[in-house]
């Protein structure tokens, strides 16, 4: 069957892929693959550890986290940063909610720093960044809306998110932007749930900047009970 719908890019057939394995030992309770451009969600139980594998390297996994029992409590980038006094997410970073409570903790991380400043890409912001000719491109905000509605979440529930494997340095004069990633095929981050959490992930479809190496690749989501 053919379609005239313009679809997003996917990875080149010769791209090296490393599906890796959980970063933290334990019984695997979930093992799913997220195709390029697609979205994903799951409830991760308190104490379980979610490993996200950057299968093809430098693939941004945009991520939002909610208290599974009350989604009005959700991930807060400013609370996460203010409590730790640092703009970057690294091993040990406690991912906090809008109430200041720990939602998850980064317990393993194979790249220097993870981002929570850059936010999600969207059709609308793409017009500012690249021009109106890319309005038809897919974006992470689209994925968050499609995935979020499965859990009763809408635009009001989208806030500044995490971007696993994306590189957003802040330079001395405040210059900030998405630059070439520091990740590689098979690199991982592991986050432990501090309460039952709903995790939304958008496998970023962006093709106008280096957040996906201009080559969108899959992500692997693994949850273990340690």
């Amino acid at each position: 069957m053919t379609s005239s719908v313009p679809v997003g890019a996917t990875f080149a057939p010769d791209s090296p892929l490393d599906w890796s394995e959980p970063l933290v030992p334990g019984e695997v309770v979930l093992d799913e693959r997220v195709a390029p451009n697609a979205s994903w969600s799951a409830v991760v139980r308190k104490g379980h550890v979610l490993t996200i594998v950057d299968v093809g390297g430098n693939q941004s996994g945009d991520c939002l986290i909610y208290n599974a029992a009350d989604t009005e409590e959700r991930y807060s980038a400013p609370d996460t940063l203010a409590w730790q006094g640092n703009a970057y997410v690294r091993t040990g970073t406690v991912l906090r909610s809008n109430l200041g409570n720990p939602l998850m903790t980064v317990v393993g991380n194979e790249i220097d720093r993870q981002d929570t400043i850059g936010g999600a890409c969207s059709k609308e912001s793409n017009t500012l960044r690249y021009g109106h000719h890319v309005m038809f491109h897919h974006g992470c905000r689209e994925n968050f809306l499609s995935e979020g509605q499965k859990h009763g979440l809408g635009l009001r529930d989208l806030v500044s998110n995490l971007n696993w494997f994306m590189n957003v340095p802040v330079e001395e004069d405040g210059a900030l932007g998405i630059v070439d990633g520091m990740s590689a095929p098979g690199k991982r981050v592991a986050v432990r749930a501090e309460m039952d959490v709903l995790v939304l992930v958008s496998n970023c479809p962006q093709m106008n900047n280096p957040c996906n190496d201009f080559n969108p690749t899959p992500l692997r989501m693994l949850v273990v009970e340690p």
């Binding site: 980038a77 400043i117 850059g118 936010g119 017009t127 500012l128 957003v168 405040g174 932007g177």
Partner: peptide
């Protein structure tokens, strides 16, 4: 207000005169 877009799109983290406060809807 979308703080992430407000920093990312102008390529600048420090607010000052001339900086737009952007929404998540590209405005």
């Amino acid at each position: 207000l979308n703080v992430a877009d407000t920093l990312k799109i102008p390529w600048q983290a420090y607010l000052d005169a001339g900086h737009p406060l952007l929404s998540g809807d590209g405005r």
